[in-house]
Amino acid sequence: MKFGVVVNEGPYTHQASDSAYQFTKEALAQGHEVIRVFFYHDGVNNGTRLTVPPGDDRHIQNNWSQLAKEHNLDMVVCIAAAQRRGILDENEAKRQGKDADNIADGFRISGLGQLIEAGIQADRLVTFGD
């Protein structure tokens, strides 16, 4: 079965990203396909490579990047939500005249259409948020 997963909250403040990660990992373990993980609202903050959590805590962003690498996951950060919150890739940073970008490995920035498309193409869309 094809799943789409939506993450609407940032890391650490809310459990949503952790829950989405556990769900995605389990769905993949059961042999399902996860066609996209879409990050919206403060969920875009999961996609910065600049987080430095304490060593004895889980590294949420690294966990997502690792999972994406292992399973060739398509992890999409909403561009409109990302721009509001300062999540940029190299192209966007250049286009907006900013001096740095911060997108993490395995994440890509794209439009809201990717969320609708996930809803159309997936058999189930599962949303985690506040």
Binding site: A80, G111, L112, L115, I120
Partner: peptide, 19 residues
């Protein structure tokens, strides 16, 4: 909170998909 505004943005983009 921003949820209502960003939900409306999804609806407006989604309208182009003929669902």
């Amino acid at each position: 909170t921003i949820y209502a505004l960003e939900a409306l943005e999804v609806v407006l983009i989604g309208a182009a998909f003929d669902q």
